[in-house]
């Protein structure tokens, strides 16, 4: 079957998709976007977290056919997505279908190899920078899912309490168990955002 959808602001057509295939598989194996990790394929770990029409979901549990015509943001597009949000919708996010990620950037953007533009410019989203600065990355396997989930939390709730952070990240497991540093990173990103306002 064929599936058309938007990934990180770029229209994409996937062909010969098996009907039982997950969005995660399509992203990783058909689109060359291996940022979303496959660790459990049963919704337990959150390392495959992406935004589907703005909503954080486990991409391993979304059937590929269900994303027809919809918008997906993965960790590869997070820097662009955050930059667009900061420019166009300060203090909130895009309405699903309204503009996707930064359209100009997205048009120039090549999905394969993944994250090329981010790497070229070296620009990271604030949450990515905070993870690095706080030392919240060990093996890094859980990081992409955590970044997507944490970014969405801060979009919704720019000044989260510790309880809010724990709740928002409760679906993301870190096998290296670096949870304290991860909490630090989210607090750091929130504090930095407040400073710049």
């Amino acid at each position: 079957m064929r599936v058309n959808f938007t990934v990180n602001g770029r229209r994409y057509e996937a062909d010969d998709v098996w009907e039982g295939e997950s969005l995660l598989y399509v992203l990783r194996e058909r689109m060359g976007l291996p940022g979303s990790k496959n660790a459990c394929e049963q919704g337990e770990c959150g390392s495959c977290t992406v935004r589907l029409d703005g909503v954080p979901v486990c991409s391993c549990l979304v059937a590929a056919g269900q994303v027809e015509g919809r918008e997906v943001v993965t960790v590869e597009g997070l820097a662009d997505f955050a930059a667009h949000r900061a420019e166009q919708h300060p203090g909130s996010g895009c309405a699903p279908g309204a503009c996707g990620t930064a359209l100009d950037q997205a048009r120039r953007w090549q999905a394969d190899p993944a994250g090329e533009e981010a790497r070229e410019t070296g620009e990271l989203s604030p949450i990515q920078q905070a993870f690095i600065d706080a030392g919240a990355v060990q093996c890094g396997f859980c990081t992409p899912g955590l970044l997507v989930a944490a970014d969405e939390l801060l979009e919704r709730n720019p000044e989260p309490s510790d309880a809010d952070i724990r709740e928002a990240l409760s679906g993301n497991l870190c096998r290296c168990t670096g949870y304290e540093k991860i909490l630090d990173a989210v607090r750091l990103a929130a504090a930095r955002a407040e400073e710049t306002v």
């Binding site: 997950s22 394929e41 049963q42 919704g43 391993c60 549990l61 059937a63």
Partner: peptide, 27 residues
Amino acid sequence: PIAGGTDVMVEINFDHRRPDHLLDLNR
């Protein structure tokens, strides 16, 4: 039928179920 897929997809990912048709309710 597949709604949120949080039960159905686990079964498909682990090959516990191979339905001849999936009926998407998301639209």
